[in-house]
C-alpha cells in the first residue's frame, strides 16, 4: 500500500501544480477539482472520513463551483508580468519554507498524545459517540459558534458590495425537470440522514449543510428558486437562524447550568441535535447566498 500512497501523493502534487499554473481558467479549476478529490482520497487513507467528506463536498465541490461561476463572469487572465527577481525571491522563500516544514515533520519529537485520553474520558458525557461531533458541538463548541460568525461575516461583506449583474437564464432542456424532481427532495433526505448520523458516525451539520446547499443550487439552476425574488429580510433571517439558535442555546445553557455552553446533564444529545439542525439550514442557505449573491437588506430596488 505504501506504493499507492506514494503515487497518490505524487498525483496530488501534480494536480495542485497544474491547478496553479494552467494558462486558462477552466483548466486551472478542473485541476483544482481533481486536486480536491485526490486530497479527499488521501484523507480517507489517513482514517479521516469526516474531513474527507467535507473536503469533497465543500472544499473541492462548492469552492470549484464558486470559482467556475466567477471565471465565467471575469475577463480572461492576462499573462503574468512578474519580474524575474520577484520570481527568484518567491521560489527561494517557498523552497525554504517547504524545506523547513519537511525537516520539521521528519524530526518530530515522538508522538505527544494530549487530546486523545481527554476525549476518550469525556466522550461518555458529551451526548454523542462520534468524537469529531463531540469536539465540534460540545468540547470546542465556541470554535464552531465563531465559525458560523465567519460565514455570516462573509455574507455581510458580499452584501455590502452591492448587487451584481443578474445571471443569464440557462436553457436546461427537458431532462432537467425530472432530475430535479428526484434530486431536490433526495438532498433534503440525505441532509437529514447525515445530520442524524453525525452523532454516531462520520457526518454532521457541515456535511449535511453542504448537501442541502447542493439541492438548493440544483433548484436555483433549474429556475425554480430565485433568491432575488424572495424579500431580503426573511432570507437573512434564515441564514442567521443557525447562529442565533446556537448563541441562544449557549446563553440558555448558562442560565440553566451556570456555565456558558454547558448543556444540562443527560440532555446533551437533544441540545446538540437541535443546534445542528439550525446550523444545517443556515449553512445551506448561507452557502447558497454566497453563491448567488444577494442584495443589501433594505436596499430593494
Amino acid at each position: 500500500m505504501i506504493v499507492f500512497d506514494l503515487m497518490l501523493a505524487a498525483a496530488i502534487l501534480v494536480a495542485g501544480w497544474s491547478a496553479l499554473s494552467a494558462p486558462d481558467r477552466t483548466g486551472a479549476i478542473a485541476g483544482f477539482l481533481v486536486f480536491g478529490l485526490l486530497v479527499a482520497l488521501s484523507w480517507v487513507r489517513l482514517d479521516a472520513p469526516d474531513v474527507a467528506l467535507a473536503e469533497a463536498a465543500i472544499g473541492s465541490g462548492l469552492t470549484g463551483a464558486l470559482m467556475l461561476r466567477a471565471a465565467g463572469r471575469m475577463a480572461p487572465p492576462a499573462a503574468d508580468r512578474v519580474p524575474r527577481a520577484q520570481r527568484a525571491a518567491a521560489a527561494l522563500l517557498a523552497c525554504g519554507l517547504a524545506g523547513g516544514l519537511a525537516v520539521a515533520v521528519m524530526d518530530l519529537p515522538g508522538a505527544t498524545i494530549v487530546y486523545d485520553p481527554l476525549v476518550r474520558a469525556d466522550l461518555g458525557q458529551s451526548g454523542v459517540s462520534n468524537p469529531v461531533t463531540a469536539v465540534l458541538l460540545n468540547f470546542r463548541a465556541w470554535d464552531t459558534l465563531l465559525e458560523m460568525a465567519v460565514l455570516l461575516a462573509a455574507l455581510v461583506l458580499v452584501a455590502a458590495l452591492g448587487p451584481r449583474g443578474t445571471p443569464r437564464p440557462a436553457r436546461l432542456g427537458p431532462l432537467y425537470t425530472p432530475f430535479l424532481r428526484i434530486m431536490a427532495p433526495l438532498s433534503v433526505l440525505v441532509a437529514g440522514h447525515l445530520l442524524w448520523l453525525g452523532a454516531t458516525a462520520p457526518g454532521g451539520a457541515f456535511q449535511a449543510g453542504a448537501v442541502l446547499c447542493g439541492g438548493l443550487l440544483a433548484l436555483y439552476f433549474g429556475g425554480a428558486l430565485r433568491p432575488a425574488a424572495v424579500p431580503a429580510g426573511p432570507l437573512w433571517a434564515l441564514c442567521a437562524a443557525g447562529v442565533a439558535v446556537f448563541a441562544a442555546a449557549a446563553l440558555a445553557a448558562e442560565v440553566l447550568t451556570g456555565t456558558l455552553l454547558a448543556y444540562p446533564d443527560g440532555a446533551d444529545k437533544i441540545w446538540i441535535l437541535a443546534i445542528e439542525g439550525g446550523l444545517t439550514v443556515s449553512i445551506g442557505a448561507t452557502l447558497l447566498l454566497l453563491f448567488t449573491g444577494l442584495r443589501q437588506g433594505g436596499a430593494r430596488a
Partner: peptide, 24 residues
Amino acid sequence: TDTSLLVLLPFLAALAATIHARGA
C-alpha cells in the same frame, strides 16, 4: 456572564442590524 456577552452581544446586534437594515 458578562465575559461571554462581550462577544455574543455585539455579534447578535450585528445580526439584528443586518436583518432589520432600516434600523441598522
